[in-house]
């Protein structure tokens, strides 16, 4: 009688790291220690985050399931709930339920080379995957990240690129659309960076996450390079309310992003007769 799938667990904000002017990474932990220690998830899954009085929204988990002490959520301030979340400080109370959705195909890509292509805050879900690969280096081949943002001020997780690149058999390529004074790195779209590098599709999987238009263009480039559509994996964003397949907000064709996704291969998306393929 007291069970409801909509009931969040109370969690506390333990740390906040400012990524960009509108995006921060929140470290949060459940107040109930048993819930925290038993909370298991996989890269690609998301949680429903509550700011009480404002509502709830789906946020991908950006931490990697190696430590059960906390979750990390990288959130852009872009709506009622996320704005309110950004107004909270360390010690602030929020609600969390989940994890929901499927995950990245971790077993299927075992032994394979990996490229991760990402734009802006699209790095958040891929960071969970990237760190998972790095924690389990021996299971995977070469890991390469192609990441771009509008300007250097819009790059997320700047403090971590060197750490990632320091791993053996790992490469990190960063670019910005528009150079500013502080930037001496590469300038240009991430799609151009990818085209130049042209990583061979042999024995390789591509993971793509970013704005919808960037996903579409990248998928097209990868297809031209010879990547099979089953080896191009993306994770989608949709408006969501319930997170558990009831409210119909996140439908894309007959699929629900909250239940059947958020991770889809391009093959799966092409089979859906919906706005994505049109």
């Amino acid at each position: 009688m007291n069970n409801s799938i909509y009931l969040p667990h109370i969690a506390t904000i333990k740390n906040v790291v400012e990524e960009t002017f509108d995006t921060s990474t929140f470290t949060v932990a459940f107040d109930n220690k048993n819930i925290q220690s038993s909370f298991s998830y996989l890269p690609g899954q998301f949680v429903e985050v509550t700011v009480f009085g404002k509502g709830e929204c789906p946020i991908s988990i950006t931490s990697t399931p190696v430590k059960n002490e906390y979750l990390e959520l990288c959130v852009r301030s872009s709506g009622k709930v996320t704005d309110a979340l950004h107004d909270l400080d360390v010690g602030g109370k929020i609600g969390i339920r989940g994890p929901y959705g499927n995950s990245f195909p971790l077993e299927e890509v075992r032994g394979k080379d990996i490229i991760l292509i990402s734009g802006g805050i699209g790095l958040a879900p891929l960071r969970s995957l990237l760190n998972y690969f790095l924690y389990n280096e021996d299971r995977y081949g070469k890991i390469e990240l192609f990441y771009g943002a509008k300007t250097s001020q819009d790059l997320c997780f700047r403090r971590e690129y060197d750490l990632w690149g320091a791993h053996e058999n790992t490469a990190v390529h960063i670019t910005v659309d528009k150079a500013t004074e502080q930037w001496n790195g590469r300038v240009g779209f991430v799609t151009e960076l990818l085209k130049e590098a042209a990583p061979s599709p042999r024995n390789r999987f591509a993971f793509v996450c970013g704005p919808p238009i960037m996903i579409k263009i990248t998928a097209k480039i990868l297809a031209e390079m010879g990547y099979e559509d089953s080896r191009i994996i993306t994770t989608l964003e949709r408006k969501m309310k319930c997170g558990v397949g009831k409210c119909m907000r996140c439908s894309i064709g007959e699929k629900l992003v909250c239940q059947d996704g958020p991770v889809f291969s391009l093959r799966e998306l092409n089979e859906i007769t919906d706005e994505f393929s049109r």
């Binding site: 909509y6 009480f52 009085g53 404002k54 509502g55 709830e56 309310k241 319930c242 009831k246 409210c247 119909m248 907000r249």
Partner: peptide, 14 residues
């Protein structure tokens, strides 16, 4: 059966 979910803030809760 489509639905929306919203909060209503009241005094000391909601």
């Amino acid at each position: 059966h489509c639905f929306d979910v919203e909060d209503e803030e009241k005094k000391n809760g909601g």
